Simulated assay, not measured.
Amino acid sequence: MTTVNIGISAEHRQAISEGLGKLLADTYTLYLTTHNFHWNVTGPMFNSLHTMFMAQYTELWNAVDPIAERIRSLGHVAPGSYAQFARLTSLPDAPETPPKAVDMIRILATGHEATARTARSLFALVDEASDEPTADLLTQRLSVHEQTAWMLRALLEE
């Protein structure tokens, strides 16, 4: 591979890429879980949840490419297999038996919060490396995950 000289040290590029790999794994795992729940939701909230989950999994699907491409821009290979994602993610896999709708909501809210924590954990390193494009990407992802978690938590209130 050609030498990468973008003003970020090789050590920082490596560490940031590894962190982004974890964010990519969390995002993809959350995408799969959300899509699974979209397919399998039942009950009185079916229509609203089916529609909401579709909007959420579409947003997550559109997020994986920019994360992976940022890893590539830093000169590293993006993880892209189920085995790699399973090893890197902080999220549990979706239950094999679809849970009740309220449990789906709880699982997704927790998943968005965990993914936000993964993104937030990179800021000190990204700041140290003066990696503004990654900081911008992380800020965008945090905004989405925190807002989505809030909206899901709101559905759980009595």
Rank of each mutant, 00 (worst) to 15 (best):
L155Q: 11
A15Y: 00
A129G: 06
S143N: 13
M45F: 05
N36G: 09
H145S: 02
E128L: 12
A119Q: 01
N36L: 08
P92K: 04
Y31E: 01
P44A: 15
W39N: 09
R117C: 14
G111H: 02
T27S: 07
E59I: 00
I6M: 14
R106S: 06
G21K: 02
D103V: 15
P98S: 03
E146Q: 09
Q140M: 15
R106F: 00
D103C: 09
M1R: 14
Q84N: 13
T3S: 14
P98N: 02
G111L: 08
P79M: 03
T58C: 00
G7I: 08
T3Q: 15
E146V: 12
V77P: 00
A116H: 10
R117P: 01
L91I: 02
T42S: 13
S48Y: 06
T27K: 06
L20C: 07
L138G: 07
E96V: 04
P92N: 02
F37M: 10
V77E: 15
P79S: 07
G75L: 06
L23M: 07
N5K: 12
L32G: 01
T118Y: 04
F123D: 04
A94Q: 01
L20G: 08
W61A: 10
V4P: 03
A86R: 10
H50F: 06
L60T: 01
N47I: 05
A78K: 06
S81T: 15
A119V: 04
T139E: 14
L108D: 00
P92M: 06
R72G: 08
I8E: 03
R70V: 10
R117A: 14
T2H: 15
T110K: 12
G7K: 02
R153I: 13
A94T: 01
T134I: 12
S73T: 14
E96Q: 01
A83P: 01
A55P: 02
W61T: 03
Q56L: 03
A116V: 12
H112M: 11
G43Y: 02
S9V: 05
A86L: 15
V144H: 07
G80E: 09
F53C: 02
A78C: 05
S17M: 07
T139W: 11
A68L: 08
E18M: 13
M45I: 09
T2R: 14
M1D: 07
D131H: 12
F53P: 02
T89D: 04
L60Y: 00
S81C: 08
R153F: 13
Q147I: 05
A55T: 11
V41S: 08
L137H: 07
E96D: 07
A55R: 13
P44H: 11
T29N: 02
W61D: 05
P98M: 04
L88H: 03
L156D: 10
L32M: 07
E11Q: 10
I107A: 00
W39M: 08
